[in-house]
Each structure stands twice: as structure tokens, then as C-alpha cells.
Design a protein around this nucleic acid. Structure first.
Lengths: 230, 230
DNA sequence: CTGCATCCTCTTCGATACTG
DNA sequence: CAGTATCGAAGAGGATGCAG
């Protein structure tokens, strides 16, 4: 009829699913809802997706009216949600909230990935809850392969940068952790405090910054919410 | 890592999308939320899906904990949503509501299908708003091929049956319509009253039943809601 | 470096037919 | 009624290339 990919149903849920519920698309939209606008930043949020497929999906989303692309001064496109796209947020949040409440942590925690964790903590970090000067926080995951062990987050003038190579600044706080413990904290399965007491996370450095970590550390949007399963 | 199909991300939206946002799955869940429990009834809601794929999806949903299957007395399985599955309703309603508000009717109306329309009107019909006796309502779509022209809905003792062959009862109301007009009414783009006045729908039969059609006729759950596009 | 396009392989899907 | 079996077509993933 219309095309091969269509469900052929006029039902609004069917029409919406044709656009939103295709492979990778909810994750791309998650990146957009976090404010990402550029191709390679999108890729950091969905690193296992091939660039060709991401490119295809962006064209589909643009054709559907969910995003626009505009060529910037540097000649590269900038993608942005339209109002239609922004209004997907409640539906995606509801789906994410359901996942948070119902999907077993033992399943989610099979997908540990320091890169995704740090990338998300970077964007959810609250600079205003840190001292009003440059702050450098190092994260150390001793159990990982050397290339993934060290991460630095540099906060300066409200901007948050994530580095995989030492920026050379004095370290204000060193967070040493098992990746599983840190991810569990991010997900809201446990707390920094509990993990520190259990010896799975250590904080070394400036007392004030360590004490206020619960305020500035960016966790999952769903972390404060109750769960129904283990 | 885990398997090929996984996005490899611990994010709850990613985990939820792996289960819910696969091809056909939102439509299957829509059927379940309407109370369907049997394989061939599910098929009526997703007639363009192959039975092999439906069977596969049901196994996946069961493995994910969203449905259970129990063998009934007749030896055939009965599928039911678990609590985990029922709690998907807000997310799916949000997605459907978004589709209703934002997807152009000209696009949805490319998917006209009398079978899907009648099947949905059957299950959303309100028997209590009809006289407390057997009522037979015939729908006639003169422009369609003969096999799709005639439909009968029989309401008796609170049960609603849909027939494609004449049940032989006296007709209490004959609804003659263009399929596009009837579907537009179902979607909430227009009203029965407006379509009758425009000559695209005719009601012939018992006055009281015709007058109360707005009460007993089952429309889309989203029909009363505002839309943002044409 | 960013933003793709191409080529190739592998998996999934759809159509049809058939079974207990 | 409730599925399997089979097979060709479409789609996704990985590697590589390339222009601005």
C-alpha cells in the first residue's frame, strides 16, 4: 500500500510506532531530549549504531517532522527537535520510567559501559552545586582495562567537559569505584553513601566537594523513583 | 555482548525499548490492553503480521515477563498481561496520544481498512447505551468491493458480535457511509452529526437508536482530544 | 575531524503453505 | 484453533573510503 515498512493501520498508536518504535530511534530521541544537536555527539550516545544507519534515521526523523537540520556556519548540519519532537518527551519518559520500575537490575547491569556512564554523568552534572571556580574530578575504575580506567570531568564557568586523557589540572576529588557500583548509583539502585560504606566507592580529595557529591553528581533522571523488582 | 539484538546500554529507556519498540510489538500490546487473550483474536488486530512472527513475539513477551500463557480447558493457550505488562499502558497511551495530536490525518487516512475499523468499533461499543434487547446495526460502505461492503454488529445481553454475513435479524439501524468519513469520525477529526449533514453518512432505522449513536458508537480513545495538525 | 556513502555479509521479515 | 515450515526479499551491522 503506502510502503513496505508501514503497518497499514490508521490507529494513532500504529502511526506513532512506525516513526518512533524502529530500531535505535528511541535512543536517538533520548539524545535529542538531552540537548544534543550534532552528528558526532549523537554518535557518542549510541556508539554501537553504525553511522550509515544513524544518518538514515536522521533523514527519516526529519521527513516525519520530528527534527530539523540546518547548516551551520562551519558547514556542518545542526539537528534540532521540532515542537512535534519535543512533545514526544512524556511518552519516552513514561517508557523509561517503566523500564526503571520493572526491568531487573541484573539484566541492565549486564550492559556496563564506562563510556556511556561518564558521558551521561557529564551532561547531568550540576555545576552550580560545585565551588565557583574550576573543579577537576577524576574517576578511576581500577578493574577495567587501562584505556577505560581513567576519566576526568572538568567544570569551569558552568561548562562541563569530559576527558579520557589527563587534563593536567590539580585534582579536587578522586572517585575510585567499581564500574558496577557506580552504575548502580547512577540507576538509583543504591547510594553513594552506601557504596562508600561498603568499600566499593572511595572519595579522596577536598572534603566539601566530597560531602556535596549527592548534589552535583548527575544521575539517571529515574534514580529517585521507586522500583518494583530487584 | 549479551546478544545481537541488544543495544548494549544499561539506560532504562534503552532496556525498555529493546522489549517494547520492536516491530509490531506496540500493536500487539494495544490488543492486550483491549482485553484480547487468544491467538486468533490477536491476529485480527494485526492482520498483516505473519502468524510465525506473532508467535515469536508472544514468546519474547512472555520471556520478558509482560504476558503469561496458560493452557485452557480446550487445550489452547490463553495469553494475559502481567502487572508488568499492564503498567505499560501509560507509556503506550502517551505515544498514541502524541500520534493523535501530531500525525497528519492525510497520512493516517491512507491506511483505510474497514476490517480494522469495524473490529475496533465492535470492542468499544457501549451496550448499555442501547435498548435492553437484541439490537442489530448494519454498516454499509457502498464504494467498497462487495466482500467488504456489509457489516453487522449484533448486541445482545451485553455481548457485542461482529459479522460479515447477514445474521438474518431485523435491522434496527442501517449506517451507510463512506469508509473515509466513518474512519474520520472514529479518529475524532469530525462528528457523526457533521458527516450526516454533509451527506457522507446516512442513518436509517429506529429514531431513538439513531439519535443516541454518539453515546453507543465506540470511537478511538483519543477522539475527544485536541489535535495540533490537519 | 565531521558527516556521510558504499560494499558486503548476516539476520529478520513477509508470504504462502501446511500440520496436529 | 494455534501454531510450524520454507524461502525469497528487505533491513541491519561492520569495514572502509572520501569530500569538505
Amino acid at each position: 500500500m503506502t510502503d513496505k515498512h508501514s503497518y497499514g493501520q490508521f490507529c494513532p498508536l500504529s502511526m506513532a510506532s512506525e516513526i518512533v518504535c524502529t530500531r535505535w530511534t528511541p535512543l536517538i530521541l533520548r539524545e535529542f531530549l538531552h540537548g544534543t544537536t550534532r552528528f558526532n555527539d549523537l554518535r557518542r550516545g549510541v556508539p554501537k549504531m553504525s553511522p550509515a544507519l544513524l544518518s538514515k534515521r536522521l533523514k527519516e526523523l526529519e521527513a516525519a517532522g520530528i527534527i530539523t537540520s540546518e547548516t551551520r556556519a562551519d558547514g556542518n548540519p545542526e539537528y534540532r527537535l521540532t515542537e512535534m519532537g519535543r512533545e514526544l518527551e512524556p511518552a519516552l519518559m513514561a517508557l523509561g520510567g517503566w523500564g526503571h520500575r520493572w526491568i531487573e537490575s541484573s539484566v541492565s547491569l549486564r550492559n556496563l559501559d564506562p563510556s556511556l556512564l561518564m558521558w551521561d554523568m557529564r551532561r547531568n552534572l550540576a555545576p552550580l552545586s560545585l565551588p565557583d571556580r574550576r573543579c577537576t574530578i577524576q574517576f578511576l575504575y581500577p578493574e577495567l582495562a587501562p584505556v577505560d580506567q581513567n576519566w576526568w570531568i572538568v567544570v569551569e564557568d558552568g561548562a562541563v567537559d569530559l576527558c579520557r586523557i589527563d587534563p593536567g589540572h590539580e585534582i579536587d576529588l578522586l572517585v575510585s569505584a567499581s564500574l558496577r557500583a557506580m552504575t548502580s548509583v547512577w540507576m538509583g539502585l543504591t547510594t553513594i553513601k552506601a557504596e562508600v560504606e561498603a568499600g566499593r566507592i572511595q572519595l579522596d580529595g577536598e572534603r566539601a566537594i566530597a560531602r556535596s557529591i549527592g548534589k552535583w553528581l548527575g544521575l539517571s533522571h529515574f534514580a529517585p523513583m521507586k522500583r518494583n523488582v530487584g
